[in-house]
Structure formats: structure tokens, C-alpha cells
């Protein structure tokens, strides 16, 4: 199967239908199927019981993050004029709208769950297939894993831009945690909230460090140990098949992040591969096609680029 990014950019923008046919050809099991192959029944861990979130008030997702949100035509035109006249650095602006908003909500939605509510497609993988406890701390671990995946890619952007994206992502993450603690988890005392936030901060440092170590040493066993410590809460009765499924999931995301260009990533054209999907490594021809499609989308030949779409990010890497 071709990564969704490739599929999206190549098929929808470039109408390269020859790529679309290969989407379902892969016969490898997706991480979810891999995890379901295990015959070992779930062994409850008494240290981490389910503590479903019963929200006092649910935090709404901003309207501009919904899929069919459209900016009115006059606002758009005014914006373009404004950007053009004042020569605004759009890479800087995009760090907030993409890194701090779109990408954050993408990470957040992966493991989001509430009491007595049906789980989303991705949450089913985390809480039912992998059998993780339904707690706030677990949500933080899942979100932290995805935030780290984005960090890895942001480091590979030019220093100034990448740092900005990272900063906006972390800011939004902790702002949201604080809001969730007060609004959804009913923690009224600011002091207690603060102490939790400090705890989450040191946890995020640990997450970043241990996964980075695994990536740098290019070893699945180090990554597995890091995932066991963080995502699986160091559960001694862990099902190793599920651990392997998660290792596969993480490696799959890293592969896509490696292939996507700076420009496409910076413009928010990245999506996590769903746990029930699988991808095949790209052939050199497909990579060339992907590059061509990206170029066509962001810098079409003899086409004008809108002021808001200007960027200094690389199209090739």
C-alpha cells in the first residue's frame, strides 16, 4: 500500500491514477492485525486499573480544525493582500497554525477517549487491541509518542523553522493538558495542577530521550524496551506480540516522515498512518513520482504562487 500522503498528493493533485491501484496490493499484516494474531488472553495489571474520564465539561475542538471549514472569500483576499504588503514570513506563521494546531490535534485525537462513549478507530487499537488502561496518564503517553514522532521530523527542517514548529507544538501540548486537567478532570486546585504539569514535563523529557536513543542506535530491541517502559507502563505480563505490533507501527510512521519533503510537512500535508493500514517501502520510481507531485502542488510550472503559499522550505528533502 502506498502511504496516504503519496496517495493524496499523487492522485488528487496530480491525477496519477497508476499509483492508486497499488494501494491494496500489500499482503503484509497491519499493526492491528499483527496484534490480533496473538492467542494470549489479556492479563489484567492490578497496578494500572481503568480510570475512565468523566468530564465535567468537554473541551471543544476549534471550528477551524474541522475538515470542511472554509475561510470567507473576502477574508482570504484581505489576508493575501496583507501578507504581500507587509512581507510577512509565512514559515513563521505556519509554525503556529500547523505545528501548534493541526499537528497537535492530530496527536491528541489518537488516544482520546471519554467515559461511556464509543472509541474512535485509532483509540480502539490502543485501548482494546493493545489492552492499555483507559486513563489520563495513558492518553498522555500515546500523545507523547506521536509528538516525539513529529519532533524527529521537525529536527530535520532548517534550524530556525524546525525549532519554531517544535516550540509551538510543545506550548500547545502543555496548555491543553492544563485545560484538560481543570475542565475535564475536575482538578480545581492550581497547586495540584502545577505539580501534575511538572510531572508530565519530566515524563515528556524521558519519552523524548528514550525514543531518541532507540532511533539513534537503530535497534528494535532498544525501541521495544522504551515502548515497554513508557506506553505499556512496564507491565511484566506484557504480550510480546503486541509489543512487536507497536514497534512496527512506530517504524512505519518514521518511514513516512523520512520520505515526506520539508515543504509538504511544513504545509501540514502529513498524516499518521492508521494502525489498521499498512504501507510498503517505496520504489525509486515511486519516490520520483512523489517528488514530482509535491513540486506540482507547491510550485507549479508557469503558475503563480499566492503570497500565503510562499515558503523557503525545501521541496526535495
Amino acid at each position: 500500500m502506498i502511504p496516504r500522503q503519496v496517495y493524496r498528493t499523487a492522485v488528487k493533485q496530480h491525477r496519477a491514477h497508476s499509483l492508486a491501484g497499488r494501494r491494496l496490493q500489500s499482503n503484509r499484516a497491519s499493526p492491528k492485525e499483527l496484534a490480533l494474531q496473538s492467542h494470549l488472553p489479556k492479563i489484567e495489571n492490578p497496578d494500572t486499573p481503568d480510570r475512565d474520564i468523566n468530564p465535567k465539561r468537554k473541551l471543544p475542538k476549534p471550528a477551524y480544525e474541522s475538515e470542511n471549514f472554509k475561510v470567507p472569500e473576502w477574508k482570504r483576499a484581505f489576508g493575501e493582500l496583507f501578507i504581500n504588503v507587509f512581507r510577512i514570513d509565512m514559515d513563521n506563521v505556519r509554525a503556529g497554525t500547523m505545528g501548534g494546531s493541526k499537528y497537535y490535534y492530530m496527536c491528541k485525537d489518537q488516544g482520546l477517549q471519554f467515559k461511556d462513549e464509543p472509541l474512535s478507530e485509532t483509540a480502539v487499537f490502543w485501548y482494546q487491541t493493545l489492552g492499555l488502561p483507559r486513563t489520563f496518564g495513558q492518553w498522555f503517553q500515546i500523545t507523547g509518542l506521536h509528538v516525539w514522532l513529529l519532533f524527529v521530523r521537525m529536527r530535520a527542517m532548517p534550524f530556525k523553522v524546525g525549532k519554531n514548529y517544535q516550540q509551538k507544538l510543545v506550548d500547545k501540548f502543555f496548555k491543553d493538558i492544563e485545560l484538560r486537567l481543570s475542565e475535564e478532570m475536575n482538578i480545581l486546585s492550581g497547586q495540584i495542577r502545577e505539580s501534575y504539569m511538572k510531572d508530565f514535563h519530566s515524563q515528556l523529557l524521558g519519552i523524548t530521550f528514550s525514543y531518541d536513543e532507540a532511533l539513534a542506535s537503530n535497534s528494535d530491541s532498544v525501541l521495544a524496551a522504551a515502548l515497554w517502559r513508557n506506553v505499556f507502563n512496564g507491565d511484566k505480563n506484557i504480550d510480546n506480540v503486541k509489543l512487536e505490533a507497536l514497534v512496527r507501527y512506530v517504524r512505519m510512521q518514521l518511514y513516512i516522515l523520512n520520505k515526506i519533503s520539508d515543504r509538504a510537512f511544513g504545509f501540514g500535508d502529513f498524516e499518521f498512518v492508521a494502525p489498521n493500514e499498512t504501507i510498503e517501502p517505496l520504489t525509486p520510481q515511486e519516490e520520483e513520482k512523489l517528488r514530482e507531485a509535491t513540486r506540482q502542488k507547491y510550485e507549479p510550472q508557469n503558475g503563480k504562487i499566492l503570497p500565503s503559499n510562499r515558503s523557503s522550505l525545501s521541496l526535495d528533502e
Partner: peptide, 16 residues
Amino acid sequence: WADYYKVDKKLLEPKG
């Protein structure tokens, strides 16, 4: 899986 989904220099020696 590390061998199947290979990651190259782009991520391991990041530009920034």
C-alpha cells in the same frame, strides 16, 4: 522492522 522501514541520513543527521 528497522530493516524493513529503513530511515536514512535525513532523519539521523538532521539538517537543523
